Every structure is written in C-alpha cells, then in structure tokens.
Simulated assay, not measured.
Amino acid sequence: MGTASSILTQYDIEEVQEHCNNLFSQQEIVSLYQRFCQLDRNAKGFISADEFLSVPEFTMNPLSQRLLKMVDDLNFKDFVAFLSAFSAKASAQQKIELIFKVYDSDRNGKASFKDMLEVLKDLSGPFMSDEQREEVLSQVLREAGYTKDSYLTLDDFIKFLVNLT
C-alpha cells in the first residue's frame, strides 16, 4: 500500500477493514482502492485537497471547504476511515464525531458559537441574514441549555444533539 500503483494484498484489505471497524466488505475495499487510485493522479500514495475537488459531489457540498481541511493528504487507510462515517453501517457515534470535526475547524477540541455560526452560514448561504443566523443559533443553544459564550466539546456536542431531539 506504499504507493497508489501497488496492488492490494489480502493482508492490506484485512488491515484496512480492521482500521474502519469492518464497515466495508473486501469487495468494497477493492472498489474504494480503485477510486483512490483514480483520485491520486500522481500516484503519490495520498490524495490532496486539489484531487478531492475533482469529485463533483464533493465540490457541490456547501461544507466542502471545511471538509477539505479534513481530507487533505489522506493515505488509503485514512481515506477509507473518513468514508466509513458515511456508511449506512456506521454507528451514530462515528457520524456525530465526523459532524463535530466539521464544526471544530481549528481542531482545538471545541466548537464555539463562531464555529457553529460559520457552519450555519455555509449551509444557509444567502437565504438567511447574519442577524437571522445569530438569532436562530442563539435560540437553539438556549433551548439546549447553552449560551453564545459556551464552547462545546465532543461530549457537550453529543448532549446538545440529544437535548434537541
């Protein structure tokens, strides 16, 4: 698995499966490897942010710029681990951890009001004013027992989501 042009061995496949909690079958791993090799245009063994931008579904995502920070320079194993959160077989915990990483763009382990506001802006685009976004987010935080000055850790974020439901 050192370079993208190498062939996956049975050991490699099993190692990748284990790395992503067996969410993908061996055939799915092989298919993902073929896609990885297509994206890794220079056969460097990792995919750059620029190479990710060649995926139309990725660039159409309103959160693509935030996601790019998470996917830049992924090797195959990490590529599959990243994609595993999107699997129907992924646990709620895995999905929540990925969502939290989207909010925690500076990777300090906390999501601030500003972080959450930026994600809301990315998602709402021109359909909401800055004032409307602030008002909505403030109200949602208040209803969940938080304030604009709160910093949410992953555990807080999970509690926050639970309080919203």
Rank of each mutant, 00 (worst) to 15 (best):
K101R: 14
L123S: 12
E51W: 02
L68F: 10
S124P: 04
A49V: 04
E57L: 09
D50A: 10
L53F: 05
T165D: 10
S138M: 05
A81H: 10
L137A: 08
F160G: 03
D130S: 12
S5G: 04
A4M: 04
A111W: 06
L137R: 08
Q38H: 12
V80F: 02
R41H: 00
D78A: 14
V55S: 01
N108Y: 05
S129T: 15
D156L: 09
S150K: 06
F82Q: 04
S112C: 01
L123T: 03
N75Y: 07
S48E: 01
L8K: 06
M128Y: 13
F157V: 06
L123N: 03
F113S: 08
S6N: 04
Y11E: 14
V30S: 13
S64F: 12
E131D: 13
A49N: 02
F58N: 00
C37N: 02
R133M: 15
K77P: 04
Y11K: 15
C20S: 11
I158L: 01
D149Y: 10
S54R: 12
S138V: 11
L63D: 05
A111M: 06
K77C: 06
F160C: 02
I96N: 00
P126D: 13
M70I: 09
M1Y: 04
K44C: 09
I47E: 04
V162N: 12
V80E: 09
K159P: 00
F24D: 03
